[in-house]
Nucleic acid binder design. Structure first.
Length: 526
RNA sequence: GCUCCGUUCGUCUAGCUGGCCCAGGACGUGAGAUUUUCAUUCUCAAAAUCGCGGGUUCGAAUCCCGCACGGAGUACCA
């Protein structure tokens, strides 16, 4: 009978969750969902010195925002808790002792200063000190010291750590789902500390014990763990848990967009894109690191971007919903090499998701921004707007959003591209004035006002009177006149179809704007 | 230094059981079309001699070896 799929995301609460970590969580989630398995959130807070308040909450909030849900974990409970390693502290010691009893581990009494000195000593000889099968006999531990000395030290409460005892000259093979078999020789591996002098386990011990007791079937984690994977395999062997050892998959790293190296916290704000899912205010430095959510990315877009950074569906489809990702995900298509984050493509994804939102949804996102600019949206409004005041009906805002959303990638860009729908321009782009506002233009603009005042205020009627009868029949330059009208109404040379805009603004407002432009810009000098 | 992992257009990648690949898609870039402007949209284009060098083979991006380069690890951090 196949084992139930149980995967875990196990971050350390040492700060905000890095976008690479988010991707790891996502891949675990997709894998769990696809296989009808369980997704578990375990907090690895065995390093008390690096604990950052708020980090755990941040992780949960970020993943919730992205739609990555957990079946078990610190925040939702579950049958294999507790899910925070600090809460599991009492259970680790017995496992460390079990390893000592079976000869797989030993006590080491070397003080940190002594180890540091040893490293310096080796460094002076251009060598690297490693606490391993070659050097452990020169150190102070239960392997090198007489038994009664060891007992004396233990009884007197002398601080100690427990180290794993790697057997000499043994090839250890880790089977990785992405990379195949990776073999390392134990002679090159060091005797890692499993249990610290403060009574806490290290990552290595806690990880194996927890994965085993939580019945984890697959460990999907970052590539930075590959070098210590042999230790983990040996630990399963030492505990006699090899039969139920989880399968490993080491994900390629996310690289910085320019230059080389792993994506780091600093690159993000320097290069103009976030490396964190949500804004993070560092409690110590007070420093703010920006997040995708606050930058205006849609959670669906972030999920899509991350999913494709290191994986592909095997088809040419690039826009994929969470449901599709769950259906299509497979470890075979995870790439082996690191991926650089591409800001432009990320924007494109967000643009695509913007188009998928209904006009109403976009308007909903836009309304708070309008308020910031002093624009009110009145649901009970009887007319679309009350120019020259600043109250607009919801349908009007929805219409504007529908017309203009294809031009933006982020909702934050909406105000700049649509402000003239809500406010008359206060100044006129000088370059545009120079280019468009040619001599005789005030005459044409006055004619526009006259036409608006005389013909019925309907698209076709105005089109005929202005474009057909006045401009075309009058042998005028269509572009020149219409562009000047645009300049007068919008203040610059961008915008939607001119007459559509006029219809939306209304007769009175359009005339006001044109007259103001005539007054402000005046007749150009030749 | 040592160990491990990796290396296809600027970027993400397809290709993985050798021939359909003088390498396909996407983002970005350039050009054109459309438009009263801008944007959108559409069409087209440039862009990787598949890190380099050997080998195996009738034939290699695909298999093997070496080298180079990049990354990760090398803590009583995870």
């Amino acid at each position: 009978m196949p084992q139930e799929v149980r995967v875990r995301f196990a971050p350390s609460p040492t700060g905000p969750l890095h976008i690479g970590g988010v991707r790891t969580a996502l891949y675990n989630y997709l894998f769990a969902r696809q296989n009808g398995g369980k997704m578990i959130l375990r907090i690895e807070d065995t390093d008390q010195t690096r604990f950052v308040p708020g980090a755990e909450q941040y992780i949960i909030e970020a993943l919730t925002w992205l739609g990555i849900e957990f079946d078990e974990g610190v925040h939702v409970g579950g049958p294999y808790g507790p899910y925070r390693q600090s809460d599991r502290k009492p259970m680790y010691r017995q496992y460390a002792e079990q390893l000592i009893d079976t000869g797989w581990a030993y006590y080491a009494f070397d003080r940190p200063e002594e180890l540091e000195a040893k490293r310096k000593e080796y460094e002076a000889q251009k060598k690297t000190f490693q606490y391993d099968c070659h050097t452990r006999n020169e150190m102070q531990n239960s392997l090198s010291l007489p038994p009664d000395d060891v007992k004396r030290r233990l009884d007197s409460g002398e601080p100690y750590v427990v180290r794993f005892k790697f057997p000499a000259d043994t090839d250890i093979t880790v089977h990785d789902l992405i990379r195949g078999d990776v073999t390392m020789n134990s002679n090159l591996l060091d005797d890692k500390v499993l249990f610290k002098s403060d009574g806490m386990p290290t990552y290595h011990l806690a990880n194996i014990v927890d994965d085993h007791t939580m019945l984890i079937s697959h460990v999907i984690r970052g590539e930075e763990w590959l070098p210590s994977a042999p230790l983990h395999v040996m630990l399963y062997r030492a505990f006699g848990w090899e039969e139920t050892m989880p399968q490993f998959a080491h994900l390629p790293l996310l690289l910085k967009p320019e230059g080389n190296g792993k994506l780091s916290k600093r690159d993000g704000d320097r290069l103009g894109f976030p490396v964190f899912p949500l804004d993070w205010h560092d409690p110590k430095s007070g420093e703010l690191s920006s997040g995708y959510r606050e930058r205006g990315y849609f959670p669906e877009a972030v999920v899509n971007i991350l999913a494709l950074l290191g994986w592909n569906p095997g088809t040419e489809q690039e826009i994929l919903s969470m449901e599709e990702l769950i259906r299509l995900f497979n470890v075979e298509h995870i790439s082996k090499s690191g991926a650089k984050f591409n800001v432009e493509k990320a924007k494109w994804f967000n643009h695509e998701y913007m188009q998928m939102h209904t006009d109403e949804e976009v308007a909903e996102m836009f309304i708070p921004i309008l308020k910031e600019h002093g624009i009110n949206v009145d649901d009970k409004a009887t007319s679309e707007h009350d120019f020259p005041l600043s109250t607009f009906s919801r349908p009007y805002v929805v219409k504007v959003c529908g017309m203009m959303k294809e031009r933006i990638s982020f909702i934050s860009e909406m105000w700049d591209t649509t402000c003239y729908f809500f406010q008359a321009p206060t100044d006129y782009d000088p370059a545009a004035v120079k280019k468009r506002w040619k001599p005789g233009m005030t005459t044409h603009m006055n004619k526009v006002v006259e036409i608006l005042n005389t013909v019925p205020f309907e698209y076709q009627a105005i089109h005929k009177a202005l474009l057909d009868d006045y401009i075309v029949a009058g042998g005028l330059n269509m572009g020149q006149v219409m562009n000047s009208l645009r300049l007068a109404v919008v203040g610059k040379t961008v915008g939607p179809d001119m007459l559509t805009l006029v219809m939306m603004l209304g007769k009175d407002e359009t005339i006001r704007r044109v007259q103001r432009a005539i007054a402000v810009i005046g007749e150009p000098e030749c």
